[in-house]
Structures are given as C-alpha cells and as structure tokens.
Design a protein around this nucleic acid. Structure first.
Length: 411
RNA sequence: GGGUCGGUGCCCGAGUGGUUAAUGGGGGCGGACUGUAAAUCCGCUGGCUUACGCCUACGCUAGUUCAAAUCUAGCCCGGCCCA
C-alpha cells in the first residue's frame, strides 16, 4: 500500500494507541501486515483474535489489571474478538515474572473459585453480550493434555541462556535466589496458549514482553503467523512509588464499595494523575482541570462512575466530603455498613473495631484509640476501655479509624 | 553425592547463655500540618472479650541448664564451589 496510508493510521486509531507502552513488531512504514498492526487492522476482512490471559491466582482484580482489560474492550468495540484465557492450568505453576520468590502452587479448587470471581469483576469492563465479541477459554483445555514428548518439543525451542535473560530470572540468579525448573515452563505454556487459540494479537503489561515474545516464537514454530504484542504500562499504585498490587496494599479493587474507591482515588499523587486519566478513563487529556485538587476529584468521580454508576459516585463524593469535615449527618448509602447483630453487649470499643475489621486485632484497636485515630460520629474517643451497653447507643453511627476507614454501625 | 556458608519479627539486619517481645533501618498505621497530596515533625508497629495479668515468638524436633534466639544432637530448607 502507499506510505500516506500507513503514516496516517496512528491518528485513525486513537482507541488503539491511547495509553499503550509498545506494540511489537512495529514498522509503521511497512506495507507488510505481519509487521504493521495498524495496517493489518485496516486490511483484514475478519475479526482479529485478541488474546488476554489472566491467571486466577488471587481473588481481587484492581485498577492495574483493568488497563489491559480496557484495551481489550477497545478491540471489542472496534469489532474484534476478545479471547479471554483463564490460566487455570498456568496458575498452578505461577508466573515467575517480577517475582523474587517462587509462587505457592494453588489447588484446583482455589483456582476454580478465583476464576469465577475474576469473571464477575471484569463483567463491567468487557462486552459480554454482543455475539462473537468474546470467547472465554481455560488453558487446562490444551495444557493438561500435553504429554512429555510435546513438552520436550516446547522445551527444545529455547536455551537456558535465553531463559536466564528474562528479567525475573536474571535478577534472582544474580541475587543467588532459587529458581526451580518448573518455572522455566511458564513462559512456554503461556506462549503455547497463543498457538492453541491462534491469536493475532496478545495484550499484556510491559512486564509480559518476554512471555508474549515466546508466544510469537512458538507460533512460528508451529507454522502460524506470529501474533502482535500490545504492551500496556504498569500502573503505579496509590503510594505513587511501586506498581499497584494487592500485596503491597496500594491498590484500588474493582469490587470495592464506592466510598472506599473514591477515598483512595481522590488522593492519587499529583505526579500520577495524568497517567491515571490516560490509562483508566476515556476523558480527553487536554481538557483536565487546572487545579490539582479538582483533577483528583474528577478522576475519582469518573472511575467510581465506571464501576458503580453516576449516582453512587456522586453519593461517595458527598459522603467523603462530610466525613472529612467531621459532619455527623451522613445520609448517603455510600458508607459501608457493619451489622451489630452478632455482638454481645455490653461491649468494648476495641472489640467492635476488631470485629468490624477496621483493626486487625484488639491490641491494634487499643493502640489506635490511644493514638487518637478513632472517632464515633466524628467525635474522637481516647478512652481505651470505652464500652457500650446496648446496640441502641450505636445504631446508625459512623465508626472511623484514621481518615479513610469508616463504616456505619447498624442493628 | 561431597565441601562450605547461611535460615531472627512485614522486609533488611543487630544480637552469641541471664534486666527485654528481642538494638537499628525500611515499610506500614496513626496524630499535627496541608490541597484528604508531597515534604516535615511526633507517636505506634506479636496476640489475648477487656490486661500493673496471661500466651506465643528468633527454620523444625529433642536435649544441656535455675535460665537459650544464643550451647549440643538430629532433621528440613537455601546459596556457592566440586562431582
């Protein structure tokens, strides 16, 4: 085709190029559809098969994961087929990417349960309804049937040197940490997924580059046209430093209640907010508010709206405002509730704090009280042995620890 | 398989028989301040249905001792070197 055609493609496909980190192979001037994704999209007369794999290793999906899901949705909206691969088999080995330790191996039951909750959570991002836009596949379908002969075939496509070049392995090897042989199999299995479903494109975080590249190698090995890899940036967590992850506690989970979500998002560090808008919303980046505080609020409102709807988002915003200002008349539904039903009265405040999950132990609860962190309906409690005689005295009141943890006690 | 070094609380890392939940740093949480941010300062950072009391802790187990994270033996796990 002509050069003019391919040089305009990046403007023609804003849905593809927004917020991405890298596409490879990438030769924007090439007229070969195997090395120019924009051209392939323009010329092909069938839906592309766009792969995204997730390993159901935990239970919560957070905004960091949502980035690739959102890109997958963009492909769906452009008419392509999303192939969502649930790594029920690979989850049991554990992706060594970015890990400094071996992963614990999960039982089949855990994996099945996690997979179920994952699907529920991505329901709000992906198009589950339009026919032909989504395939959900479990990789045990093909991986559990590989015999040793086939496994040897996969293994023989890569050298130890190539494996050790992978960042996670290189680092661990450097630090003299253990690397187990079964971990070497992980990239090959993920790559084989691409072969099994005949992927045209695979999405992943930048940390997945190696694994996606292995997929290309294996597809070529099996006589298929190698997939394109679309890499998305890794989202920095709410601490503004490390990547968002549940274990670091700097995450915003998709299934969190509106108020919790809002409270976390409205304090995103200034340095991060632009990335958050780019990666997590569709808002035009040129039109963001000047005032940093307004930007934070808009971001929080927008994202909560995506997952809980406009009304809940506005409610969360209002509730957050009230709580911070110490107002006692909180009438929104946005504050999570805690039932006093199972509590025997009289009861100490520290016990309620533990029972409600606001504190992880009664000892911690006592410390928090001593540290002045605990409020009931905005009023600070500093008496360690504060206790309550009946549920009536607490019903409807808001219990708060610190600035961002609160819930309403109900009978 | 052999040799050697090592396994301490969320992480790193002191500590080598006896005031002790175990120096210090990081991280986390809380308070003040602020833009509910950042920076800074201060406090907390095993658990216990209710605490000048009890329990659990330094890879595991069994010992020595009035007394062990610290000594002994066996075991488990990891790194490196050799095979």
């Amino acid at each position: 085709m002509t050069n003019s055609f391919s040089s305009t493609t990046s403007q023609d496909l804003p849905w593809l190029y927004r917020g991405i980190s890298e596409i490879f192979p990438s030769k924007p001037d090439s007229d070969n559809t195997t090395e120019n994704l924009a051209l392939l999209i323009a010329k092909i007369n069938r839906p592309l098969r766009v792969k995204l794999g997730i390993d159901p290793t935990g239970t919560d999906i957070h905004l960091g994961h949502s980035i690739t899901f959102r890109k997958l949705r963009a492909f769906q909206d452009a008419g392509h087929t999303a192939i969502l691969i649930i790594g029920d088999f690979t989850a049991r080995i554990g992706d060594p990417t970015g890990k400094s330790d071996v992963r614990r191996q999960l039982s089949p039951e855990e994996v099945a349960q996690n997979a179920k909750t994952y699907l529920e959570q991505v329901r709000s991002i992906l198009d589950f309804d339009t026919p032909g836009r989504l395939e959900v596949r479990y990789n045990s379908e093909w991986l559990s049937n590989l015999n040793l002969e086939k496994i040897l075939g996969l293994l023989s496509t890569m050298t130890v040197g190539q494996m050790l070049a992978k960042e996670g392995f290189a680092e661990r090897y450097e630090k003299e940490n253990p690397i187990y042989l079964h971990e070497f199999l992980y990239p090959l299995m993920q790559g084989y997924d691409s072969v099994a479903i005949e992927a045209d494109v695979e999405l992943g975080g930048t940390d997945q580059k190696f694994n996606l590249a292995v997929g290309r190698d294996l597809q070529r090995h099996f006589g298929q046209t190698p997939q394109f890899a679309v890499l998305m940036p890794i989202l920095v967590g709410t601490d503004g430093v490390q990547k968002m992850s549940k274990s670091l506690g700097n995450y915003v989970g998709l299934s969190e209640d509106p108020l919790t979500m809002y409270s976390k998002l409205e304090k995103i560090p200034d340095s991060l907010i632009k990335d958050y808008f780019e990666l997590l919303t569709d808002l035009p980046l040129e039109q963001l508010p000047e005032n940093p505080r307004d930007r934070q609020k808009l971001l929080a409102l927008e994202i909560v709206t995506q997952y809980h709807g406009k009304e809940a988002a506005i409610g969360a915003q209002q509730a957050s405002l009230n709580l911070v200002q110490g107002k006692t008349n909180i009438n929104t539904d946005a504050v999570p509730e805690f039932s006093l039903d199972g509590i025997e009265f009289p009861v100490t405040l520290s016990f309620i704090l533990k029972a409600s999950g606001l504190c992880s132990s009664t000892s911690e609860a006592r410390r928090q009280i001593q540290g002045g962190a605990v409020r009931v309906d905005g009023e600070r409690i500093s008496e360690i042995n504060q206790s309550f005689d009946s549920p009536e005295s607490l019903n409807g009141k808001v219990l708060q620890v610190g600035k961002k943890n609160f819930l309403r006690m109900v009978r």
